Simulated assay, not measured.
Amino acid sequence: MTVAEELADLPYADLLRPHTGPLAVDGDYDTVHFDRLSFEDGEAAGGSRFLESAVTDCVFSGVSLRRSRFNDLWAYGTRLTGVSLAETNWVDSALVGCSLAGVEAFGAVLRRVVLRRCKLDSVNLRGAQLHDVAFEDCVLRDVDLGEAALNGVTFPGSRLERVKLGRATLKKADLRGAVAVDLADGYDSLRGALISSTQLLDLAPALAATLGIVVEDG
């Protein structure tokens, strides 16, 4: 999936119109540009639809976007803190240089989504479905992927720190490009993942402990 690095590179850039005012529940945002806006606690846009829209240098704090749909959304330099993205649906979208902290995204469905140079801290993706999702040069710290389904997910240049994978299902999930893989749990869920020989050596002690293998020289 080709990802635009600048707003002008979007195929629908010339159609965008600026957004003004608050967000609305069940809102319909088609070819809308959210630029340098702040949305604070109490605002809600649950069940909304975002189509071919752009979000640049915005701040979302304590906002609910639960069960919203994002099709061809492009977000750049945006910060999301304590935002509810639970049960949202994402298709053909990209987040570039964004920061997500304390975000609830359990039960979300992501298809053909790219996260590039993003920081994810304490993001709850429990039970989410990720299909053909790429984390490029990202940091995933204390991210919960427990019971999630990862199909065709890649992590080139990314760091995984204390990531939870308990009872997750992996299919063609490629960890070979990750610069660090540190799991808080779920080593047994790595079945179906692709890892490098170096990563296997790094993970060997934890894998042995998970399988009950005693490694002892002598």
Rank of each mutant, 00 (worst) to 15 (best):
E6G: 02
T88N: 12
D9Y: 00
L145Y: 03
P22F: 00
N89V: 13
E40Y: 02
F70E: 04
S64K: 04
L140T: 07
L200D: 13
T154S: 15
D121V: 13
G42F: 04
S99Y: 04
V139G: 06
D57Y: 05
W74G: 05
G27D: 14
V123L: 10
A45G: 13
V55K: 02
D174I: 11
L37A: 15
G46Q: 03
V133N: 03
V163G: 07
S93M: 10
K171L: 12
L145V: 08
G62S: 08
V163E: 12
G166D: 13
G42T: 01
G192I: 07
L211W: 06
L130D: 07
R17M: 06
R36L: 04
D185C: 13
F135E: 08
L95P: 03
C138N: 09
A86S: 12
A45F: 02
V96K: 01
T169N: 07
P205S: 12
F34M: 11
L203D: 11
E136N: 08
T31S: 14
V114R: 00
A101T: 15
L23Q: 10
D30Q: 05
D144V: 10
Y76H: 12
D28F: 08
L23F: 00
L200P: 00
D41F: 09
L145E: 09
A148R: 01
G127R: 07
F106W: 06
L51V: 09
I213N: 11
L145Q: 08
L175K: 00
L203C: 11
A4S: 09
V179W: 00
G146E: 01
R112D: 15
L100T: 09
L65R: 02
R112G: 02
G21W: 00
L145F: 10
D142K: 07
K119E: 15
L183V: 11
M1V: 15
V3K: 02
G97Y: 04
E40K: 02
V163Q: 05
E5Y: 01
H19F: 02
G97D: 15
P18R: 07
T56M: 13
D28R: 04
G146V: 08
A13D: 11
F34N: 04
E87I: 04
L203T: 02
G192W: 03
G218T: 08
S64N: 12
V123S: 09
E161F: 03
G46I: 02
V59S: 10
V63T: 06
W74M: 06
S53D: 00
W90T: 10
A168C: 05
A208H: 10
R69Y: 07
R141G: 06
I213D: 14
S68G: 15
R36E: 13
V139C: 13
G77Y: 11
G152A: 13
S93V: 11
A86Y: 00
E5I: 00
L15G: 01
V133H: 04
V109T: 15
F39S: 10
G47Y: 00
T20V: 03
